[in-house]
Write a protein that binds this DNA or RNA. Structure first.
Lengths: 201, 201
DNA sequence: TCCTATATTGAACACTGTTCATTTTGCGGG
DNA sequence: CCCGCAAAATGAACAGTGTTCAATATAGGA
């Protein structure tokens, strides 16, 4: 019973190992279960012993990848200025997306098929961003004090550039590195409290 | 010969008409050529007389939709303040995306399959945004004077929120309307020249 | 009316994800 | 050692998909 379980887990690992490479190379749609079965050296049915369906399998790959992002973010060297800390994290998020385009694509660019009722499973990475936002709000440098509002503004902003750089490689981008920096600078500076005039409505 | 051409065009229109509804209802992947053929009342092969493949057909639908966006943008009532004008346009862009999620998804969330060599076909809507950016730069209120840099920062920012609101309806968003406004406000204000301290590096 | 160029057809090809009755496998107990 | 039994693996089958193409139907001009 125990040994059987071990073997089951080994089989699962073997499939995931092979799946990882195929997924990285091909992306969600090109990546096929039958092809994977061939690569693993088993029949298509076997994969369904270990995973409910293609979506569940790919979700496992994605979770692994995003755990790594979370680790990367936590491993970031602390900055004295909370605003600098935030900038570094935003940059790391974008870099991660660009280094794992297929993972990022599946996680954030595909409409997930689960019905409206099912609760949203938060990414640890987003929680990290939210915590950093909190620090920045607590240091009272921001124009707003709604943690969720601010972190969602930041997330959507960095998601925008990450996803467009992935999906539109042929667009005549200005220097991408500068663009990313400028976007981050713009977002942070736009959220900062300004001494000079502001506010209407 | 003339009449034949007319009939050809009619057939094309008929297919596009039926395709439009299916595509809006189902999105790119659910939408199938065979299903479309059934709806039109012809055989699958006939559709390939009018369109090279599924991609080309859907591209026609998308172009129609984005022409409408371009019209909407041009029809926007002019504002005295170029910055307000820009804000209105950004808002209209986002609203358009949210009203046509499947079109938006196909246009900006799917990696287009054409090889790296093929030139990028610019959307008229993006040109419009670029022109507005130009006006804003000319009024010397912005921190930067690179039109492309600024317009790309703005585009990626509004794309971020548009796409995430489409793909992550289950995310615990704050009030969406406020979020959109706050993002636009943040982006514009972050690009504005500040009297107070700035710059490092 | 007949000829011909075009439009249309639908079967066929090569795929896809997924299911399930059937067979093989390997461990624990007698 | 071997038998039984439960778990694992199989691969054919189902219902789809986009796309192609030889064969057929059709309609306009001579």
């Amino acid at each position: 019973m125990n040994l059987r379980n071990e073997k089951h887990k080994l089989g699962r690992q073997l499939i995931l190992h092979e799946a990882r490479q195929l997924f990285i190379a091909l992306g969600y749609h090109q990546f096929s279960m039958r092809q994977l079965a061939k690569a693993v050296g088993c029949s298509p049915g076997t994969i369904y012993v270990h995973f409910k369906d293609k979506n569940e399998l790919v979700n496992c790959l994605i979770e692994d990848a995003f755990d790594k992002l979370s680790e990367t973010l936590h491993a970031l060297e602390p900055q004295d200025d909370p605003s600098d800390q935030l900038k570094h994290a935003l940059r790391a998020y974008i870099d991660f997306g660009l280094e794992h385009p297929n993972h990022y694509h599946f996680a954030f660019l595909m409409k997930d098929p689960r019905p409206a009722g099912t609760p949203y499973a938060p990414h640890a990475a987003f929680d990290f961003l939210r915590d950093l936002t909190k620090s920045n709000i607590q240091s009272k440098r921001l124009r707003l004090n709604d943690i969720d509002m601010v972190s969602q503004v930041l997330w959507t902003a960095i998601h925008g550039i990450t996803s467009l750089l992935i999906t539109k490689p042929r667009f005549p981008w200005v220097n991408k590195d500068q663009l990313i920096n400028e976007l981050i600078e713009t977002a942070i500076s736009g959220l900062n409290r300004e001494e000079s005039a502001q506010e209407k409505t």
